[in-house]
């Protein structure tokens, strides 16, 4: 809802993403702070920010697929893995520049996602969630069992650093700017997609696919598109991941990682791009806290050893998902919007 006195007078203004001067100022401040971040905070925090931006790309893709189009997707990590492997193979075998490998990684993941999106034409609800789990298993199987000079098998692939005009993107700061540029493009694209014709079709299919079909929307194509776009984002995120970690292995893309991404959009709020970003921030913060605190606890209860981080993470994220579904199924963005609108119309109740 816009604040009082702000109303669009033409379709052009109505379609705007940034609607008020204050929003513009906030966005400029945010982008400015992000650009300055490597000089303001320590290297460790820059590394965390890198991780958050990559997760943000993937979570925004999942948000489009699950939050906007309503297609449950528990295979986002597999799609990310397809992208990461594509980028890794292209970069290490053919030496293509990252300007090409990142989009190609996106397209190959999109193709893989599209195949599973086609099943969505006939299947819906949790059946669909099951086929996306199958995507997860098939990806795992393919990597481990195809000849190991194709995809590295269980050894994984080492990725050469990204390079542009002789400038090598190694170290947190250089990677930060590369990730920031790609993330900014992808998120701007997401805002564009969700307010376009496709985005409105997604929402219509999510709310009621039978009714959407009667209104003339090609439901099967829309669902397949949603998977295609979601997987494209995952693939781009996976390529960034490959360039950041400089190594891809099949253990980085498991069902558990897919569930972490789902947790991000549930916490942030379904059907909101900003919500996905909020969710990424919160879940990654929780992860960092557990990773920092975990080893200290592990010292006192020694029989668990290093597994406490993984175990604690699962307990907390599982609890967070269940709690949010029970108490706040629409996520934090919904709460924030309620607060904002009640502040705007204060002192009136509505």
């Amino acid at each position: 809802m816009d604040p009082s006195g702000i109303f669009p007078t033409s379709y052009r203004t109505d379609r705007r993403v940034v609607r008020t001067r204050w929003q513009m100022a906030a966005l400029a401040l945010f982008v400015g702070l992000m650009l300055a971040a490597p000089y303001l905070v320590s290297g460790r925090i820059v590394a965390i920010l890198n991780m958050m931006m990559i997760s943000a790309v993937i979570a925004v893709g999942l948000q489009i697929c699950t939050g906007y189009a309503g297609q449950i997707n528990l295979g986002q990590a597999a799609f990310m893995g397809v992208g990461a492997y594509t980028a890794a193979i292209l970069a290490s075998k053919t030496g293509l520049t990252f300007l090409l490998t990142i989009p190609l990684a996106g397209f190959s993941a999109a193709l893989f996602g599209f195949l599973f999106g086609l099943t969505a034409a006939r299947i819906k609800g949790f059946y669909l969630a099951l086929t996306t789990i199958a995507a997860q298993f098939i990806f795992h199987f393919a990597v481990l069992n195809l000849p190991s000079n194709w995809m590295g098998g269980s050894n994984g692939i080492t990725v050469p650093p990204a390079e542009l005009f002789g400038l090598r993107f190694v170290g947190e700061t250089a990677q930060f700017y590369m990730n920031f540029a790609v993330t900014a493009i992808m998120i701007a694209g997401a805002f564009g997609i969700v307010r376009s014709r496709f985005g409105r079709a997604f929402v219509a299919v999510r709310d009621d696919d039978v009714a959407a079909g009667i209104m003339g929307i090609n439901v099967a194509a829309t669902k397949a598109n949603a998977f295609l776009i979601g997987a494209f984002y995952a693939g781009v995120g996976g390529a960034l991941w490959a360039y950041m970690i400089r190594f891809v292995g099949v253990d980085q893309f498991t069902l558990f990682h897919s569930i972490f991404f789902v947790a991000m959009i549930i916490v942030g709020g379904m059907g909101s791009i900003v919500g996905a970003l909020v969710g990424v921030f919160i879940i990654r913060m929780i992860q960092e806290i557990i990773a920092t605190v975990g080893p200290n606890i592990a010292d006192s209860v020694s029989f668990l050893g290093g597994d406490i981080v993984f175990a604690g993470m699962n307990v907390i994220l599982g609890g967070v998902i269940a709690l949010f579904m029970i108490l706040e199924p629409k996520g934090l963005m919904h709460r924030w919007n309620i607060m904002k609108s009640s502040y705007r119309i204060w002192p009136f109740p509505y």
């Binding site: 699962n314 307990v315 994220l317 998902i321 029970i326």
Partner: peptide, 13 residues
């Protein structure tokens, strides 16, 4: 469905 997915990782942990 999501609650049981949450349960999956909660119980595993």
């Amino acid at each position: 469905v999501m609650v049981t997915v949450g349960l999956l990782i909660l119980l595993r942990g």
